[in-house]
Simulated scan of single mutants.
Amino acid sequence: MTRSTFFFDPPFTTSGVTASLAKTAKPVYGVLGFVIFITLTLVTIGVGLVAQPLVVSLLGAESPWVTSLTVFVTFLPLWVFFLIFTIRNRRHGSGLTSRGVGRFLLGVVVGIALVWMIMLTLVLFFGGRFTFNAQAFAAPAFWPVAVVSLLVFYVQGSGEEFMFRSMMARFLARRFSAVTIVIVTAAAFSAVHFSNGMKQPLVFLYTFVIGLLLGLLAVTSNSLWLVLGLHGVYNWATGYLTSIFLQAPADPAIAPLATSVAGGVAIVVVVIVLQVTKPGWHREKAAVAPERTPARADEPVVA
């Protein structure tokens, strides 16, 4: 059986617990797939709007745990759905292909490198300065909050990757090329962030650029593991690494611009690597696998 080079194969199915069910399961495309995606998006945004004042009322506005607990509560329903779906589909239905640990760790390395690229961009072009904030580093609450925040940001990042680079991407996979899928999912990813309280044009720009990078890596790595590793540590490091090692410019609008620049450089690097290693990748459709057909005795099966 000839398979697509992208992680959209095998198809996004409603079942898949056994091989026999997987053969007959219908893909979640069309109206059903669209309704599921929109419903999950709206539920996540709605829970976030309710969670913020609830957590503040329980912990107080000055508590260092407010942001972590709010993010966790917001993305918990989506993550539960993600786990249930993954278990029912034996990993592959959600894009969690094999060799996960290595790709996840590579994503962590790429995410940290991206944050250092952003800090370097701020220093070289926007008046930032490398420093060491010993006071923040030595604060009693720093490490407990940092560790919990890292776990929470992985809950958030994996939820967003499931929404956009798994579920939405599969909804588009039958009809569109890899480039179209990357652009559309990045635009949706950016629009959700823009509508969720961060309504500045530069925020839309930098989340779109980061979405392009995540989409490129997810589609062309044949797995979600790489972007799961990248997304969580990126969200965490932009808060914690920058607070320790960077004196940022006074203008808060500069950081999204620097992120867009650094993310754009990373995208160019990824595209150059793809052009060398996978020529024609941008024209290939992330098609679902064809039906299984018996192989002739003289014809080898391509896995």
Results as ranks from 00 to 15, higher is better:
residue 63 S to K: 10
residue 283 R to N: 10
residue 214 L to D: 11
residue 198 M to R: 11
residue 119 M to L: 04
residue 197 G to R: 01
residue 90 R to A: 10
residue 287 A to Q: 13
residue 86 T to W: 06
residue 257 L to G: 11
residue 105 L to D: 03
residue 278 K to P: 07
residue 103 R to V: 07
residue 168 M to V: 11
residue 198 M to L: 05
residue 23 K to A: 15
residue 271 V to L: 10
residue 282 H to M: 04
residue 249 P to R: 01
residue 171 F to K: 12
residue 104 F to L: 06
residue 41 T to D: 08
residue 226 L to W: 01
residue 82 F to L: 15
residue 90 R to S: 11
residue 11 P to Q: 13
residue 21 L to W: 13
residue 178 A to D: 01
residue 188 A to Q: 03
residue 42 L to K: 07
residue 132 F to E: 05
residue 224 L to G: 09
residue 130 F to E: 12
residue 283 R to P: 03
residue 173 A to F: 03
residue 18 T to P: 03
residue 64 P to K: 13
residue 68 S to E: 14
residue 237 A to Q: 09
residue 81 F to M: 11
residue 141 A to C: 01
residue 223 S to K: 02
residue 231 H to Q: 11
residue 55 V to H: 06
residue 135 Q to F: 11
residue 118 I to Q: 11
residue 129 R to M: 08
residue 183 I to S: 03
residue 171 F to A: 04
residue 182 V to A: 07
residue 275 Q to F: 14
residue 294 P to H: 09
residue 220 T to A: 02
residue 210 I to H: 01
residue 138 A to H: 04
residue 38 I to Y: 07
residue 271 V to E: 06
residue 66 V to Q: 12
residue 83 L to H: 10
residue 97 T to Q: 00
residue 274 L to W: 04
residue 64 P to M: 12
residue 57 S to H: 09
residue 237 A to R: 10
residue 237 A to N: 08
residue 219 V to H: 00
residue 71 V to L: 14
residue 25 A to G: 08
residue 52 Q to G: 03
residue 81 F to V: 15
residue 217 L to M: 15
residue 99 R to W: 00
residue 133 N to D: 02
residue 136 A to T: 12
residue 293 T to R: 14
residue 267 I to F: 09
residue 281 W to K: 08
residue 256 P to Q: 04
residue 250 A to M: 00
residue 44 T to A: 01
residue 277 T to G: 01
residue 50 V to S: 06
residue 296 R to Y: 14
residue 155 V to H: 03
residue 156 Q to D: 10
